[in-house]
Simulated scan of single mutants.
Amino acid sequence: MRTTDPRPLLDRATAQVAELIARVPAERMADPTPCTEFDVRALLGHLVAGVRAAAALGETGERTGLVPAADVPDDGWAKAYEEGRERLLAAWADDAKLEAPISVPWGEMPGRAYLFSGCVLESATHAWDLSIALGGPVALDEELAERALEWAHRFLPAERRGEGVPFEPVRPAPEGADAYGRLAAWLGRTV
């Protein structure tokens, strides 16, 4: 696996999510997503909570957990996400943070690994979820999905599913599926 600086990928992944969030019309908030635990509104809340928590971790080195984004009105998701995204990118700008150990629910790891697993993988996966919920798929950054899938294959193998793992068993991807479809299937979504 390539061990490069994840921040350029993080910037692209969160920019892609921001663009998708800006496209969500108010009347689609209750629509289902391929991530069965979330409708569109709940997915937006999860995404905003995620960038806020990742920003706080970068700022303090301490995990705050995902605090539901209940403070965001339906017409404020794009602004809330962009503010969280900017804070996230600024919080991880210091190169030293890439090697500093951090503790997250799935273990202790260097900041670099967290940004790949907790942020790039999460953003790429939920970008697909949101694009499908909006009637997509819309054109998404294939390299991001390829890198996220590479990471998922390495650190979320098929045999590591079950109790305590927030992913369903691996499902088959349709023949000819793009990188996002293969990533979604690997994480247990029906493609």
Rank of each mutant, 00 (worst) to 15 (best):
E175R: 13
E150H: 10
A127K: 10
L88D: 07
M1C: 14
G188N: 11
H126W: 11
P172R: 15
G45Q: 07
L144R: 14
L183Y: 08
R154Q: 08
E108R: 14
Q16A: 04
L66Y: 12
D95N: 09
A173W: 04
A78F: 01
W128G: 02
G45L: 00
G111D: 04
L183H: 05
L130V: 08
L130M: 03
A184C: 02
G136W: 01
C119R: 06
L44S: 00
P68K: 06
D178P: 08
V51A: 08
L140S: 07
V48H: 05
A70Q: 11
A124E: 05
E159Y: 10
H153E: 11
D74N: 04
A145N: 05
R23T: 09
T60M: 13
R189K: 09
R87Q: 10
D74R: 06
D5I: 09
D129F: 09
C119Q: 04
L88F: 13
C35F: 02
L183F: 05
W151M: 11
L98A: 14
L187H: 10
A70S: 03
M1W: 13
E83V: 15
A15H: 09
L130Y: 00
D74W: 03
V72F: 00
L98M: 12
L140E: 02
D11Q: 14
D75P: 13
D141S: 03
L156R: 07
D95S: 12
A93R: 14
R85N: 03
P32Q: 01
L183T: 14
A13T: 02
P166N: 10
R161C: 07
A177R: 05
D39T: 08
Q16G: 09
T60S: 15
Y180K: 02
